[in-house]
Structures are given as structure tokens and as C-alpha cells.
Nucleic acid binder design. Sequence first.
DNA 1: TCGATTTATACTCAGGTTGAGCATAAGTAA
DNA 2: TTACTTATGCTCAACCTGAGTATAAATCGA
Lengths: 243, 243
Amino acid sequence: MTEPEFLAGYDPAAYDRPALAVDLVLMGIRAGRLAALLLRRSQQQQAGLWALPGGFVGIAETLDAAAERVLHDKAGIGRARLEQLYTFGAVDRDPRMRIVSVAYLALLPEAAFAEALAGGAALTAAMLVVPWAGEAGGPVSAETEDGAPLALAFDHVDILALAVKRLRGKLDYTDVGFALLPEHFTLRQLQDVHAAIRGAPLNKSAFRRRMRDRGWIALTGAREAGTAFRPAELFRFDRSGQF
Amino acid sequence: MTEPEFLAGYDPAAYDRPALAVDLVLMGIRAGRLAALLLRRSQQQQAGLWALPGGFVGIAETLDAAAERVLHDKAGIGRARLEQLYTFGAVDRDPRMRIVSVAYLALLPEAAFAEALAGGAALTAAMLVVPWAGEAGGPVSAETEDGAPLALAFDHVDILALAVKRLRGKLDYTDVGFALLPEHFTLRQLQDVHAAIRGAPLNKSAFRRRMRDRGWIALTGAREAGTAFRPAELFRFDRSGQF
DNA sequence: TCGATTTATACTCAGGTTGAGCATAAGTAA
DNA sequence: TTACTTATGCTCAACCTGAGTATAAATCGA
């Protein structure tokens, strides 16, 4: 993109370019575990395998805009917290042609995740199986809710693995945990989400103390309804405590 | 990249594609401050401005390979720790045409940084000015060693800002600090590197204790030479203590 | 040669954070 | 009314961090 090419009268349009796509990792909590939405491929290439929703980037379209378009059109989801994850550029990652893909992470509250799942017939929820193995986590695999393994297309298992890793890394010092919860939530729910992302249990009192001291959550005044026993306080995420 | 396009007999080669490039943020320590290598643009577009070394991605070339090629050919550097940073895809980020750029972070030891600087006439070292403003850091600006401001081309100031932010975020739990140091180093040098990255001073005894307890460094048995006063122990990075 | 100077390293202590356990509160169901 | 279960609050020991002080190891100048 600099001098020598232009000095030589270089015209990049004359060269073969990789195709550019975005792929979305739509994550949510399901049955207390970390899950991602997958689409069943019906085309000849890798038909029957499960893949992340994706699409090509338009010539006059931002990467973020492409990701949002795929979110709407392919996954049928209105709004989600979108964040760029990583760009995958192995030469043979797609057998059809050279496709470089910018992976995005989208976080859905439990209800929105379930709703998306009900909307698309070709959609499924992949429960992510991630051995703990320290902060980084080991290799990821995907399975159905019943425990049957899901075969993933292309390099999408690597993309899922990185998504989990990123989520874990950002858990402690950003608001990613709240993005997976409804607007009002209990401390127990918040802890369950953190535990699901970490893949390891948390100390209860230490977790509550830390969350309350941090100033990121505020009491709503309301309490949980319909519980069999003592109802928990409902909190909301308080963005003003972020800084 | 999925069904509908292929059902409709979609041929992605027929569509206009964004050009795909890599840009390198080559970081090192210079005069005790965080610095990056920049190239002076001599072409009509943004001539005279300073830019990150970059180049287009070949059709049969991995992103990592493209980054390494640019490292050799444009910056004249043999080896560095390369790591993908972020992909920049604003539609008008390059006025010539639509170019999506995958930014890479390369970390150089002080000696390699100085050597690269001596090799290329069009190269300069940009000292990065980053107000502290908490963990995230404020907006970055670049200046020469004498304090004169450097005008940057395209969106490269954003790329630099993100590089600094990433470096800060990874400082505490990865080995990025060591990548900026020679093989053998003193605890003081290590602390100076950390302070330069953070943009804020560190508690001396707490830093030493933390580093030694962490098990990432090992004594070499040798000591610093040529110092006016008590010579410090020389350490080396011990990768075996990482896990 | 010896003391002044400067930096490296070691040690101690107070304050804050974390993990763990126990006591009390607040609901439902029998 | 009592049993049961979960939420919330309190305490304590272990650990980590920031800060200060003391000692060690080198050079330099008188």
C-alpha cells in the first residue's frame, strides 16, 4: 500500500484479491452453559456441517456494517453488542476460493438467544465444551444440548475457540457479563454467567462483594418474583460506575 | 459466504472486492519512551506525511506471511514478535480506493529498533505521547525525539492508539514486556519498559517482588558491567514459568 | 587507602483484597 | 406454626500491594 508499487504504476485492481467476508459468533447462555448459534449448511461444499452465520463485505460497506447486516439477515436478530474478534486468513480455509474472514463476537441476552433460535429452522444452539486448563482454556468443541457432537465447517471451530478465550479475558474488566443478561438480574444470575464463561465455579461471597464494591451495578428496588424461597434483589447494570 | 448467494448462482469474483492490506506497528523503546517506526510518504497521496509500513496481501499469501514480508522488505527487519492487532475497514480510510487493512503489532528489542532506524533513510522513530487517563489511555499523538509533532497519514493515528492500548492490556499477563528487551536484562530495565508502556511509574519493591514471584525470569548468574555503582543481576526470560 | 556516593537488594509493616465459613433474613409449602 | 431453601450480611485468616528503611556492592575522589 506504499511507494514501490505506485512508482511502478501498480494497479491493485489488476491483481487477484482475496474475497473478504465477516463471520459472526453469536453467543449466549443456554441451560446455564455458554452457547453459540450455528447454521446448517445445505450447499454441496461442506453440506450438513454447521457454520457460523457470515457474508461478504460490500465494496462500500464498513466491516461493522457488514456484521450488522449479517446479524439481521442471516440470524434474524435485531440488536446485539457487536465487537470485532480477529481476522482469519489461512489460504485454504475455504476450499471454494480464497476468503479472508473478519470474525465478530455478538453477545445476546438469554431471551434474545432463545428467540433467535426459535425463528430460524436451520439454526441450532451449539453448547461449547471448553476444558478449564487455566485462564486461556483448552481446545473448544461444540455439541448439541443433548451432548451429541456437532461437526463444524471450515475453520469455525478455531473461531469459536478464540471467541471463548476473548470473552474470558475481558470478563473481569469489562461489561461483557452484563451483555448476556436481561436488563434486571440477580447477583446469582450474574455469578452463573461468570461461571459459565470461566468454565469454573466462583466463590460466592467474594464474588458478591467484588461486584457490589466495583460500582457497576445498582439496586432497582424490585425483587425477583415467583421464586420458591427468599427472593433476591434485582440489580441493573450501571454504566456510570464504569470510570 | 453462505447459502443464498450460492443458490442464486452467485459468483463473488464478479463483484467489486475491497483491496486487502496489512499495516505494521513496529514498536520499541527509545530514550526510555515507547516509540514506533514510521515511513515518510513520497507519493502524491498524502506525500510528506508519515505512515506505517504496509503492503497488499497476495492471493496465495497468509495474513501473517504478508506481515512478515512487509517486515523484511519495507522495514528491513529480520525477525520480530508479530501479532495481529485489529482490522480497519472504514470505507474512506484511504482516498485512493477501498482498502481494508489488517494491522499487526511487532515488538522489537531496543537494539533491533535502533538498527532498523539506521538502515532506512525514509524511516523515523515516532515517540508516542499517550496521556495516562486510566488503564485505557487517552488519544495518542506522535512526535519526533525533539518533541516536534509528526503528521500521520490515513487513519494511522488510530492504529497507533489501538496498539498502545493492546500493549497495555497485555502487559500484566503476557510476555510482551520481554519482547522489548535484550535477552539479558536487569530488573530496573524491565521496570523501565513496563513504566514506558503504562505511561505511569511503578512501585519499585512491589514490582521486583511480583516479577520474581511470578517465575517468568531466571538469574543468569552474570551481572551488569560498566556501571558506575553496584551492578545489578542479569536475568533472562524463562518461558517454562509461563504455565 | 578510605570514605562519600549511588544504585541494587532484602526486610518489615500497614492496608486492602480474597477465600471460606457462619449467622440471620425472607419467602413457600406442608 | 414449622421445616425448608435461598439471599444477604458479618467475621477471620491468608495473601498481595504500596511504602519505607536497612544493608550490600560497586566507583570515584581526596
